[in-house]
Simulated scan of single mutants.
Amino acid sequence: MGPDKLKILKEFDLSAVFQSKTRAEQIRALWNQFYKLYLLMQDKTTTKETFCHESQAWLDAFLAPSTGHPNKNNFVRGMYRIQDVTPYIHVLVNHVGEFLEIHQEFGLAAFSCSAVEKKNHMQVCLYFQNTLKDGGHENSRKSAILEMLEHENRQLYFALNETPNFFEAPKKFRLE
């Protein structure tokens, strides 16, 4: 957590993980660039243009294609595919520069993704616990997304109308 992540980001020996020394060096360079972005986000003097330039350079390194012929000695494996770009990477490259410019007095430390992460957790739990996962009888089959939206709508209805959305447990009596 916290500072320990930074320690791993800066000091972890990737040659212990990757058999190829070249691959370990590629990943280390990518991590070093990411650490530079992290420091730029912390610096209140960072301009939008500087951050956008550096984040785009990091994305280009992240998406570096393979070079050379796969069956020859000159082959250098690429990094990642465009499909590997996550929503967090998209925000980092395309929006954090704007955030730095607009909210310079607060800094990015004032923002948190915990609400988004919590919503994601709730959706995953709902999917696995309360849906048929796109299954069920073929005549009454609903998509899991529709089931989840209906569940959320019911929860909102209950909350707005102060209707309890639970049943009281039956009381048990023990006769002796």
Rank of each mutant, 00 (worst) to 15 (best):
M122Y: 09
V93D: 03
I8E: 14
V124M: 13
H90E: 08
S140D: 01
L156V: 13
Y38T: 07
V76H: 12
Y38E: 05
H151Y: 14
L108T: 03
F62M: 02
K7A: 14
C125Y: 07
E105L: 07
K171Q: 15
R23V: 04
Q123F: 12
A109I: 10
E105V: 12
Q19G: 15
N94E: 10
C125A: 12
T45Y: 03
P170W: 05
I27A: 03
Q42G: 15
A115W: 04
R81Q: 13
K36W: 04
Q42M: 13
L160R: 14
L37S: 01
K5H: 09
N74W: 04
F106S: 14
A115C: 06
L175M: 07
M148C: 05
L37H: 00
L59R: 02
R154S: 12
L9V: 05
K118Q: 13
Y127V: 05
N94Y: 07
F18V: 07
Q123E: 11
L39C: 13
E105M: 06
S112H: 06
I145Q: 11
K10W: 02
N153V: 11
I8D: 14
K7D: 15
F34A: 03
H137M: 01
K44R: 15
M1W: 06
Y80R: 04
L156S: 09
Q83M: 09
Q155V: 13
E147I: 03
R174P: 02
Q129C: 13
N74A: 14
T163N: 08
T67H: 02
A169P: 07
Y127K: 10
L63Q: 00
E162Y: 05
W58L: 00
S140T: 12
V96P: 01
L30E: 05
K119Y: 13
N130V: 04
D84W: 05
R81I: 00
S143W: 02
Q123H: 06
D84Q: 05
V85L: 04
Q123C: 13
R81L: 09
L9T: 08
Y38Q: 08
K21P: 12
Q33H: 04
C113Q: 11
G2H: 11
T47V: 01
C125F: 08
G78Y: 00
E25I: 03
D13S: 10
F111N: 07
L6W: 12
A159N: 08
N94T: 12
M41A: 14
T131W: 05
S66K: 04
N130W: 04
K142F: 06
M41K: 12
P164D: 12
D13R: 07
I89F: 07
A159D: 07
N161I: 01
T131G: 00
Y127W: 02
K44D: 13
R28G: 01
F106H: 14
W58Y: 00
T163I: 15
R141W: 00
V93M: 02
S20H: 01
S140Q: 04
S112E: 11
G136E: 01
L6P: 06
N32D: 15
S55D: 02
E54F: 00
E176N: 12
R23T: 07
E98I: 09
C113I: 11
D4F: 10
R23W: 04
P87R: 03
T47K: 00
H95L: 11
K171Y: 08
N71F: 11
N161H: 15
K118G: 10
R28H: 10
A115G: 11
F166K: 10
A64I: 04
M148D: 03
Q83V: 06
C52H: 10
A159K: 14
I27P: 01
L100S: 04
H121S: 11
G78L: 01
